[in-house]
Amino acid sequence: MIEDELVRMSTLGCPVEIERGRAGETFSRVRGIVVGVEGNWLALQALVDSVYFDGYFLLPIRDITAVVEDTENGYVSSAIEALGRPTVDYHLPADASVSSVLQTANAHSRLIALSIEADDDQALFVGKVVERGSDVFSMLLINRAGVWSDEPAELEYSDVTRIDFGDRYCAALARFGDPAPQTDDNS
């Protein structure tokens, strides 16, 4: 069972590759170290270029099709050890619903990135969650030019396939993009 394998990987602390998909579609693979399994969600300390830590990936377990322990690249463990592993400073909430995971990621980082990969467009939304409802949430978006949208976008919880935060891309947009507009933050 996938969840049992994820829990096992969380105790080992070794790099893994996560294969993902839904309803016959294949989503992008992600690499990282499992740092939490709660409810229906997985938290990975993200690895890019095999050995560099770059924030977190939060993934719904229902979309995970395989967990592969990275034992093929002998240099990876040595490189990670030499380059250093950041302290894990994020933990999934105990109830780990889409809404609560969005809330904790939103509180943890100035910007979050949401993937909706089940669409043909493979959409990426970067910004701040400003309101959470029972089936939908609103997110104020910032584009790649660093300009904020005038009105929040309404998105459905069930469409979210990945949440990224604490990464260099979001940090750069938060630092060098336009200042975030003031909102009534009910997230």
Rank of each mutant, 00 (worst) to 15 (best):
F57N: 15
N186H: 11
L140Q: 12
D54K: 02
T161I: 05
G13L: 10
R62V: 14
R162N: 11
D135C: 03
Y75M: 10
V126S: 10
D135A: 15
G127Q: 08
R168Y: 04
D89S: 13
V51K: 01
S115A: 15
D167L: 07
V37E: 06
G166R: 07
L155D: 10
F57V: 04
I112G: 08
H108Q: 13
V37N: 09
T65W: 01
I112C: 03
Y75W: 14
Q182G: 01
T65Q: 09
H91Q: 15
R62F: 02
V130Y: 05
Y56L: 08
L140N: 03
F137D: 09
F165H: 13
G32A: 11
A94P: 00
P15T: 10
G36I: 12
A43G: 11
N143W: 02
R132S: 13
E69D: 08
D54G: 06
L42P: 05
G166A: 04
V130F: 03
L42Q: 03
V34F: 05
A94H: 05
V16A: 08
F176N: 12
L102F: 01
D121F: 05
K128D: 06
E81G: 03
I80F: 00
V30K: 07
P179L: 03
S10W: 00
E156M: 09
V129Q: 03
R62S: 13
D4K: 11
Y157E: 14
L6K: 03
F53T: 02
V16G: 07
R144Y: 08
A172H: 09
G166Q: 04
R162G: 10
F137V: 10
R62K: 13
E3K: 15
D4W: 02
S138C: 11
V68H: 05
D63T: 15
P93R: 02
A66F: 02
Y56C: 04
E19A: 11
F176V: 11
D185S: 08
T65F: 01
E72I: 05
L12P: 00
D164K: 11
Y169K: 00
A180H: 00
P152C: 03
C14T: 14
L42A: 05
A123K: 10
C14E: 14
E25G: 01
F137L: 10
V88H: 02
G36Q: 04
V48L: 05
S10E: 15
Y52Q: 09
A180Y: 00
T11M: 12
D49G: 02
L44I: 08
F165I: 06
V130R: 06
R29M: 09
